[in-house]
Amino acid sequence: MNNSRAFSINAAVFFIAIGLAGCAGMSRQGQDTVAGAGVGAVAGAVLTGGSALGTVGGAAVGGLVGNQVGK
């Protein structure tokens, strides 16, 4: 594995760990909202071929769904 790829993987793991630690003080509904927004953003980006509008729209819809699931 080359150094660039190893660095990218380590950086991704680091930022995911920091992101999960940031949710520790949130309510369950807040955590579900953030998780839904993240999943929605990825889905929107994939479905629209990386469009910024699709990513933001997916995050908004995913956040709403996550918020409702967390109730």
Score class of each variant (00 low, 15 high):
N2P: 11
N2M: 00
N2W: 07
N2K: 10
N2A: 04
N3Q: 02
N3L: 10
N3V: 12
R5W: 01
R5I: 04
R5F: 05
A6K: 15
A6C: 01
A6T: 12
A6P: 03
A6E: 10
F7C: 04
F7L: 06
F7G: 03
S8A: 15
I9M: 07
I9G: 02
I9K: 05
N10K: 10
A12V: 13
A12F: 01
V13N: 10
V13E: 15
F14V: 15
F14N: 12
F15E: 10
F15K: 11
I16D: 13
I16A: 14
A17C: 03
I18C: 14
G19F: 13
G19P: 13
G19L: 10
L20H: 11
L20D: 02
L20V: 09
G22I: 00
C23N: 02
C23R: 11
A24M: 04
A24T: 08
G25D: 00
G25K: 11
M26V: 12
M26A: 02
S27G: 08
S27P: 15
R28E: 13
Q29A: 09
G30M: 04
G30Y: 02
D32E: 15
D32K: 01
T33V: 10
T33N: 09
T33L: 13
T33Q: 09
V34L: 14
V34N: 06
A35R: 07
A35F: 13
G36D: 11
G36C: 12
A37D: 11
G38L: 14
G38P: 05
G38N: 07
V39A: 14
V39M: 12
V39N: 10
G40H: 06
A41P: 09
V42P: 13
V42M: 11
A43E: 11
A43Y: 06
G44F: 09
A45R: 15
V46Q: 00
V46A: 15
L47E: 03
L47A: 14
L47W: 01
L47C: 11
L47T: 08
T48P: 12
G49C: 05
G49E: 06
G49I: 02
G50Q: 08
G50N: 08
G50A: 11
G50M: 09
S51L: 01
S51E: 08
S51C: 02
A52W: 12
A52Q: 03
A52G: 04
A52L: 08
L53V: 05
G54D: 11
G54E: 01
G54F: 11
T55W: 13
T55N: 04
T55C: 09
T55E: 00
T55H: 08
V56Y: 02
G57K: 03
G57H: 01
G57P: 06
G57S: 02
G57W: 06
A60C: 12
A60W: 03
A60L: 14
V61L: 15
G62I: 07
G62M: 09
G62N: 05
G62Y: 07
G62A: 07
G63Y: 03
V65M: 01
N67I: 01
Q68H: 00
Q68G: 00
Q68I: 00
G70P: 12
G70V: 09
G70D: 09
G70R: 00
